[in-house]
């Protein structure tokens, strides 16, 4: 199987370390060869920095990719933003010789060179492609009978010409991975809608971002689920932190627990809710934690 290096990005290690811990625990349990990508930086965040200056975006993204090239490994991302930024940059640099040359003129100053030897992967598509739902199912020790509102997040599947993951309107690969661990992926209106965080909207026009996530949360609430499952810590922050802000500003209390897929998988592979950091979310829901304890201790 492909050898990987784990690209952490910003929000996972610096806001939701439970996702980092859960990812490492899962990779270990699944026997996937993955090392730390030491000294990596921000991907850089596509909505903001890619918008500001293309040369800067490519220089920083390529440095992160080069760190993995030097290890002879592919880059594993656990965030849709990092995936989008690094995969798109990798694609552009491999396709466009002039762009590669100008980017390497910056990298040269720190003794690095982009060669185009590594691929950029996202943990969800990696697990689907390399392991598949059937194999994953065999490794589950605690099937989780949960009703889940799945949120793909935009940059996991789009732009589709660079992803090749099937339909962007009604994809199903992530649903299959969720159902492989015994959960039910519940259909709900606007399931494929954006959480509202990306594109620099959450950082630049915060109220708009909150309006967008409030709409999505209202749809999810109507679907009567146990939790939201995402594939991206920025969507995760938007759902988890967004609920706290909505409660303060609008007085709406959703209290819907938010899990990254790594955390959900970690539970199904036998780790406790505390080991994968579910109790460290901003949304507190003791009922859900109790349910998880029952499911994972049975």
């Amino acid at each position: 199987m492909t050898k990987l290096s784990l690209f952490l990005g910003c929000i996972i290690p610096n806001r939701y370390p439970g996702i980092e811990k859960a990812t490492k625990l899962c990779l270990g349990k699944l026997g996937i060869d993955c090392t730390d990508l030491k000294g990596a930086s921000c991907c850089p965040a596509p909505g903001v920095f890619r918008s500001f200056d293309k040369a800067t975006w490519l220089a920083l993204a390529s440095r992160n990719i080069v760190l993995s090239e030097e290890l002879g490994r592919d880059v594993l991302t656990v965030c849709n933003g990092c995936y989008g930024s690094l995969a798109d940059a990798n694609h552009e640099l491999k396709e466009d010789a002039a762009l590669k040359e100008s980017t390497n003129s910056h990298l040269e100053k720190i003794g690095k060179e982009f060669k185009g030897a590594a691929e950029v992967r996202h943990i969800v598509e990696f697990l689907y492609d390399e392991l598949g739902p059937e194999k994953l199912k065999e490794m589950v020790v605690k099937p989780l009978k949960l009703r889940v509102a799945l949120h793909y997040g935009c940059h996991l599947v789009k732009p589709s010409n660079e992803r090749n993951l099937g339909s962007v309107e009604r994809p199903h690969f992530f649903d299959e991975l969720v159902e492989a661990i015994g959960a039910k992926s519940v259909d709900y209106p606007d399931k494929m809608a954006c959480c509202g965080a990306g594109g620099g909207v959450r950082s630049g026009l915060h109220d708009t971002a909150i309006e967008m996530v409030n709409h999505k949360l209202s749809r999810i609430q109507d679907a009567d689920v146990d939790c939201i499952v995402d594939a991206c810590p920025f969507c995760h922050l938007q759902f988890d932190g967004g609920q706290v802000e909505i409660k303060e500003k609008l007085g709406i209390d959703y209290s819907i627990p938010v899990l990254h897929y790594s955390q959900l998988l970690g539970l199904a592979l036998g780790f406790s809710p505390e080991e994968v950091g579910i109790d460290l979310n901003l949304v507190r829901n003791s009922e859900f934690l109790e349910k998880l304890r029952e499911l994972t201790e049975e």
Binding site: P17, I110, L280
Partner: peptide, 27 residues
């Protein structure tokens, strides 16, 4: 969570941060 307080990123490696800052200036 039983993890180190700083992640294995530029946060932990000052030379790596300097490289990133050099790249940003170069651009």
């Amino acid at each position: 969570l039983g993890m180190e307080p700083l992640p294995e990123t530029v946060h932990k490696y000052p030379q790596a941060l300097k490289d990133v800052q050099k790249l940003l200036r170069s651009c």
